[in-house]
């Protein structure tokens, strides 16, 4: 049984179709990242799973519970951290977390220590008695994430967990999310931040215009790009470069090879892990010394571009 399963899920807002027959599966205790630009349907999917929105058609299940037929059961096993932390302007962070912990059934004996621990770890302890309306955007976002870290649900849903947060804060949030998974939670994250996806994902689902374009591990997705890996070589001076260049082009997996100056080459290859040993073997046979090798993988932005024909990180959302 999947932790989450949707079949032919659609959602319409008037004339706009946010989800177009989405089939999506999430295994237990994995971190799945939904990657897609704004308007791709990520938030809509998360809100349907959290029973905040109702699907127009199709089915969505969390564990064995159907989101439309057993919404209360669904809400008892999941928690959601929203994209925008809003609402209780005149409450203080500690009060908000105390309320959330109590209503989500966190035992009273554990509440205060858990709240203190999370607030300290996410550097909110000093701000615990400030009114919500006086928190910075980053603090409000960290507070929103803290709710789930205290609740520790079986299925934790994060909508852009580290947006508006500085790099140090992002790392802390990511570490906490990983810790949550290690303790047995299944994690579903929506983001359009490539670094976040690379850091956290066991698998990535690429969403575009309400549809799942592909779903696989980060490594497999990168390997799918023909010529996506870049290998930069520097050979010792005096090498018969013309001959070696021809032989390098013959190695299986070479998509293109260009000279980058004297004894320097830049090769676009399909799978660098397979190409580099063949290349070093060739150099050994030709008694040519390699001075340096540098391998660059494609980013998830390249993966997104490959599968959708569009760049994920635009200057607007990068």
């Amino acid at each position: 049984m999947y932790a989450v399963e949707t079949q032919n899920l659609t959602k319409r807002y008037g004339k706009t179709q946010a989800l177009k027959g989405l089939d999506f599966m999430l295994d237990s205790e994995e971190i799945m990242v939904l990657l897609g630009p704004n308007g791709s349907g990520k938030t809509t999917l998360l809100l349907i799973l959290a029973t905040v929105l109702k699907p127009t058609s199709g089915t969505a299940k969390v564990g064995s519970y159907d989101v439309t037929k057993q919404p209360t059961k669904v809400r008892q096993v999941l928690g959601i951290s929203f994209q925008e932390a809003r609402g209780f302007w005149r409450h203080k962070p500690a009060e908000i977390l105390r309320f959330h912990a109590a209503i989500c059934g966190v035992p009273k004996s554990r509440r205060d220590t858990a709240i203190e621990e999370i607030l300290k770890d996410l550097e909110l302890w000093e701000a615990r008695n400030k009114l919500f309306m006086h928190l910075s955007g980053g603090q409000a976002k960290r507070l929103e994430v803290s709710k789930l870290l205290i609740q520790r649900p079986k299925l934790a849903i994060f909508d852009e967990p580290s947006s508006q947060v500085d790099l140090r804060g992002k790392r802390k949030i990511w570490e906490q999310i990983r810790k949550l998974r290690e303790e047995g939670s299944t994690i579903l994250i929506a983001t359009n931040e490539v670094r976040e996806a690379e850091y956290l994902a066991d698998r990535v689902t690429i969403l575009d215009q309400g549809k799942s374009v592909t779903c696989d591990s980060v490594k497999n997705l990168k390997d799918e790009i023909t010529g996506g890996d870049i290998v930069e070589l520097e050979l010792e001076p005096g090498t018969d470069s013309a001959r070696l260049q021809e032989e390098l082009k013959q190695i299986q997996g070479t998509v293109s090879l260009v000279s980058g100056g004297e004894n320097r080459y830049k090769a676009h290859v399909s799978i660098a892990e397979a190409w580099v040993p063949k290349m070093t073997n060739l150099c050994f046979k030709r008694k040519t010394r390699l001075l340096s090798v540098r391998v660059t993988e494609p980013s998830l932005d390249d993966v997104f571009l490959h599968f959708t024909g569009k760049a994920l990180e635009t200057p607007k959302n990068a």
Binding site: T51, V52, T72, R75, W89
Partner: peptide
């Protein structure tokens, strides 16, 4: 409109 309703709707209590 302030964003409190989605939060309240996501809490583990019956409507």
């Amino acid at each position: 409109h302030e964003g409190r309703l989605p939060y309240l709707l996501s809490l583990p209590i019956p409507r």
